[in-house]
Amino acid sequence: MSANNEPNIVAFLCNWCSYAGADLAGTSRMQYPSNINVIRVMCTGRVNPLYVVNALQQGADGVLVSGCHPGDCHYMEGNYFARRRLGMLKDLLEYVGVDPRRFHMSWVSASEGHKWKEVVEKTVEDAREAGPFEGFRRRQIDW
């Protein structure tokens, strides 16, 4: 969490849908929280669960992974794999005591600028409620 007490969110967006969706939200001049740090990936299917863990370790208060709607994947089935994998990751993180509000996944298509705005608002709001995530930070401990 930064000095002004704003949550720090890392978002992994797929190149074909969600990134374009976020772009649309921008070009449509929609207002949404600027706490999102976007990392563009070619497909949600290539989001290694360790990306999420690593982001949390390096100071993210929340992580968002967003991709194409099921059936719309540019690579046919990447998002189906991601759904299974990250669904398991969400359960696991919750089980080891990471607040479930810190990790979200969403489907946002290239035409859903408005949905993107809502997703970001929800993610930021949740991370804000969950508070700064210091317990897991690398440099917090004997660095």
Binding site: P49, M88, L92, V96, R137, Q140
Partner: peptide, 23 residues
């Protein structure tokens, strides 16, 4: 991905990674 140093953060990341790879 996971540093070799032994502390809360790395140990947790290691254990998450290990468990997840067996999901």
């Amino acid at each position: 991905w996971v540093f070799r140093s032994v502390n809360f953060s790395e140990n947790t990341a290691f254990n998450i990674a290990r468990a997840f790879h067996l999901a």
